[in-house]
Amino acid sequence: MTMPDERTKAVLETREFLLSLKQNLAVPDDVRRTAQALLRHYPEQRHLASVAAVYEKLSSAVLDDQGLALLLMSPVFDYPGDGDTPIPKRIRPETP
């Protein structure tokens, strides 16, 4: 089972790997462009810290308060989709 610190380290190291690909002139242009495109929306350390802070706060919330806390939390990730196919409403949470 992957622990949160291991997941965080993997995400940060993947970002560094993509940065190195983007900056390495020995790498083919299409690979560098792909790395740059991926980095455009790739989470930075500050994003991970925000998510960790939210989860820390939620883990200490009283069970009755968790539903409210989840409603107040802004989304960090969206449901995956291929861009052309709409995400079925049955798997999307209701938005206020």
Rank of each mutant, 00 (worst) to 15 (best):
M1H: 08
T2M: 13
M3W: 09
P4H: 09
P4V: 01
P4N: 01
P4D: 13
D5C: 00
E6H: 06
R7Q: 15
R7T: 13
R7I: 11
E13K: 14
T14C: 02
E16V: 04
F17C: 02
F17A: 09
L18S: 04
L18Q: 01
L18A: 03
L19Y: 00
S20E: 12
L21D: 00
L21S: 04
K22H: 03
K22C: 08
Q23M: 07
Q23T: 11
N24V: 03
N24C: 01
L25F: 07
A26K: 15
A26Y: 08
V27F: 08
V27M: 12
D29R: 14
D29A: 15
D29L: 10
D30Y: 12
V31L: 12
V31I: 08
R33H: 08
T34Y: 10
T34E: 11
T34R: 13
L39N: 05
L39V: 07
Y42K: 05
E44Q: 12
Q45I: 04
H47Q: 10
L48G: 06
A49Q: 15
A49P: 02
S50F: 03
S50W: 06
S50L: 13
V51E: 13
V51I: 13
V51P: 02
A53D: 10
A53E: 14
A53H: 12
V54W: 11
V54T: 15
E56W: 08
E56F: 01
E56I: 01
E56C: 03
L58A: 12
S59A: 12
S60I: 04
V62R: 15
L63G: 06
Q66M: 11
Q66V: 15
Q66P: 00
Q66S: 07
L68A: 11
A69W: 01
A69E: 12
L71N: 08
L71M: 06
L72K: 15
L72D: 14
L72F: 09
M73D: 10
S74V: 10
V76K: 05
F77M: 05
P80K: 03
D82K: 00
D82M: 05
G83K: 00
G83H: 02
D84T: 07
I87N: 02
I87R: 09
P88K: 00
K89G: 05
I91W: 07
R92W: 06
R92H: 03
P93W: 00
P93G: 05
E94Y: 13
